[in-house]
Design a protein around this nucleic acid. Sequence first.
DNA 1: CGTGCGATTGAACTATATCAAATTCGGTGG
DNA 2: CCACCGAATTTGATATAGTTCAATCGCACG
Lengths: 252, 252
Amino acid sequence: MSASTVSSDHARLIIQLELIADLTESEREQLRALPLRLRKVAARTDIVSEGDQAVETCLILDGLVCRYKTTGEGARQILSFHFPGDLPDLQSLYLECMDHGIASITSTRVAFIPHQALRSLAAREPGIAAALAKHALVDASIFREWILNVGQRQATERIAHLFCEFYVRARLLDSGAEQDSILLPFTQAELGDATGLSVVHVNRVLQKIRGQGLIENKGHNYTVTDWPGLQRAGDFNARYLHLKATPHGLVF
Amino acid sequence: MSASTVSSDHARLIIQLELIADLTESEREQLRALPLRLRKVAARTDIVSEGDQAVETCLILDGLVCRYKTTGEGARQILSFHFPGDLPDLQSLYLECMDHGIASITSTRVAFIPHQALRSLAAREPGIAAALAKHALVDASIFREWILNVGQRQATERIAHLFCEFYVRARLLDSGAEQDSILLPFTQAELGDATGLSVVHVNRVLQKIRGQGLIENKGHNYTVTDWPGLQRAGDFNARYLHLKATPHGLVF
DNA sequence: CGTGCGATTGAACTATATCAAATTCGGTGG
DNA sequence: CCACCGAATTTGATATAGTTCAATCGCACG
């Protein structure tokens, strides 16, 4: 259990980093040596809370996770979604105090990596330091796109755009991906929190997008039935994800 | 002209970094040695454009600058404002392709620093590397707050919040700040682009905020007449700016 | 003195929110 | 296997925050 499990856990991080940066075999080796403190988290549960002073960084192993903030009124805004291999609070290496929360959407496995371990690794290995920096900066790039999305796009475009991003990011991790099916495990309320729309309106927009033949779904199993159409509807261009030449010959 | 001017240009960068990180005298020394290629930019002009492949990083010396993105429809969303001492495209050190543009609001002086110079400095001086990382991460934190602002807050709160952020950031640089006066050199249209609102609505919200006695203005010269009230109206909490203990005893 | 941009006003319109109820669905216990 | 439960989805009706369009006004500047 130990060796192979651990190795596959580390593999998720390596796969993510290699989507945006090149790593040498020795760098991969070093990453595999990182100490991971594993934890299972139930669905819809806080993993890190706003105000926390973290001494570890969180690595997603399985499941779907989001970051969020709330207004004084209690309205929740989801800031980003995170997939296996992501380090959603890498910033805590430098920013003492969490300015937002991290919560699970599905039931999730996460690992915590001590800041010390990451810091010394980055100091030793400039290639890894660069890959981590890139990971954090792509994160910021996605935030910028979300500001645009929520600030300027119509409800339908917003949701279509979110689907596009999700589709691309999910498929990159799931290279074996059969058809154009992906699992979108969030509720319509969560979709609303991510796009700044009410549940009711999300529901109606979904009906419209389905009616246009862009997507189909049975429960949380979505199929993109018209990828070019969905991209058009969402005003989507993958540039902001800053992917290296796409692996597996996937083109977006 | 040269020595003292150059020094005061570098000072702006140092002041900014010291708002969020501690620097030793030797680190400051090293920062002062950075080569700066100076350039004057007229108001409302692109400094860096989406799609560019930068080999230099842009340092703001005087004036006000913004980052922005546009939708396929041509709608513009301002992503952030930048003050003297800011490095608004630090990310270009690691992300080859600009995913957004940088433009001046007022007429502006900027300096370009070769990536090479920054990279070797950061490699030599871990303290500076950390300060730069923090600068970029605070940037991302501000993006998160803006997603919340645009996604969940009402028009009035949005604009009040933007004013609060602007007020805090401007005053930190302008320690001698007499009263609570700040220069907000943007038009109402630009305010709208930053908050996702139409010009007409911005105008009406401004009248309301003025009517509530929170701010006054003669042209672009704004005075915050009720700072606690403005903070309340904007649901503002400065935590997300990740400031070190505030200098000059300023409390926000 | 125009000229033109930015600020302001008014009126009509609409995208989206809110409220409230009904329906579907995935599980869970009997 | 069925009945039931709570949560998620869907629907309908009404309300509203914010947009759009179209003028007008006020200036700063040449």
